[in-house]
Amino acid sequence: MGKVACVFPGQGAQTVGMGKDLYEHLPESREMFAKINDTLGFDLTSIMFEGPEDKLRLTYHTQPALLAVSAILFRALADKGLKPDYVAGHSLGEYSALVAADALSFEDGLKTVFERGRLMDRAVPAGQGAMAAVLGAEREALQELCARISEETGLVELANVNCPGQIVVSGSAAGVQAVVENGKAAGAKRVIPLEVSGPFHSSLMQPAADGLREVLTSVNVQAPSVPLIANVTAQPVQAAEEIRQLLVKQVVAPVLWEDSVRVLLDKGVDTFIEVGTGTVLAGLIKKIDRQANIVSVHSYEALQACLEEGAYA
């Protein structure tokens, strides 16, 4: 039998109503929901359940909300016997993976990503940074285009290497706009500007990385119970201090998601369980390997279906 990896979504997967069905139908989850507000000191669950959307979309609300739903869903799976061989998360999802692997407590995970969100929100003044999704370009050609634009116009870098034909770039507003205008030179079929609050995973986020380094000095990071495939290196990591360093670097470095999935496949993973809001990662993994068995556990209904089918047994 092949191995199982649990993967956890990042920012962009949030939606008003997230987690409400779990609270209503999964009594054992209510203690964790209560911890969310107690830990953060404000009523995040109301924002998750009822919105408004613009308030949920604030990155310092989005990040703990996504982590909370992922952690609650994973706990429900683990209580029924799920023991993944590996964990990985996309950007913010890396923290959910660390909570699942007992490297971070649920409470420390919530507090850390709330502070991470605040730091990221303040790092670059509004309007000075941007991001765009580049469809159809090869990684090397896009990297060369970004290097040329960074020299001539304004900083722009690869931010998320998601799957074949989908790469996100990030940087200065002028640099990203130049990619939008000149993407075809790198073989892009389309370049789509993204509605984001900052140039995430670019070197412009260095102030946030510096702040996060300070935050993490007081966070108890343990060696994970199963290997984590890190965003920055796309390699397994189990040493607590290395995890701490990679979480800081992750703020300014690209998320190597395609590479991470390929490493998991090479290590014998044939079942991916996406744990958390949305189905974004399932779509990306299918584009990397059409043969992979992928289960998205994003709601109470999907959780029950996964448990009934024994998708990971």
Rank of each mutant, 00 (worst) to 15 (best):
M32I: 11
P64F: 03
T15W: 15
A239R: 14
V87H: 11
H201A: 04
E241C: 03
R148D: 14
E138I: 05
S105Q: 03
E31I: 15
V191F: 00
Q304N: 10
P254F: 04
H90F: 14
I47Y: 07
Q235I: 05
A178I: 00
V168M: 03
G81Q: 11
Y312H: 12
G165A: 10
V168E: 03
V251M: 13
A185E: 15
A71D: 05
P64E: 01
R30H: 13
A123R: 08
A305W: 00
A240F: 07
D38F: 14
H298E: 15
F33Q: 07
Y95M: 05
L66Y: 01
L247I: 06
Y86K: 07
V168T: 09
K189G: 13
Y95G: 05
V196Y: 02
V87M: 12
A188T: 02
V99W: 05
I72N: 01
G165Q: 07
P207A: 02
T39G: 12
G175K: 01
V280R: 03
G198R: 11
V176I: 03
V124I: 13
D43E: 12
D79C: 07
N162K: 04
Q291V: 11
T62Q: 04
A240C: 11
L158N: 03
D108H: 06
A253Q: 12
E50I: 02
V124Y: 04
S91H: 06
E138L: 09
L110E: 07
D43F: 10
K287V: 07
M131T: 10
D270C: 05
E138S: 14
S296W: 09
S260G: 13
E94M: 07
E28D: 13
M120G: 06
R116M: 10
T271M: 08
Q206E: 15
R116F: 09
G283I: 01
G154E: 02
A88E: 12
V161P: 04
Q11R: 08
V269R: 08
A313E: 14
L56N: 10
V196P: 01
P254Q: 05
I72L: 01
T15Y: 15
R148H: 12
E50S: 12
V7Y: 15
H61Y: 11
A76I: 02
K286S: 14
E31R: 13
A185W: 03
L104A: 06
Q206I: 03
A311W: 08
S96F: 05
L104V: 09
C306E: 09
E301P: 04
I294F: 08
V169H: 01
V226E: 05
P125V: 11
A188N: 01
A97P: 08
E301Y: 01
T277S: 14
G268P: 04
E308C: 11
H90L: 14
T277N: 13
L284H: 02
A141Q: 14
S46H: 13
G89T: 06
E24Y: 08
V263F: 15
V275L: 06
A302K: 10
R213L: 10
R148L: 13
V134M: 00
L204I: 02
K55W: 02
V168F: 05
V180F: 00
L145K: 00
S170W: 09
G12V: 08
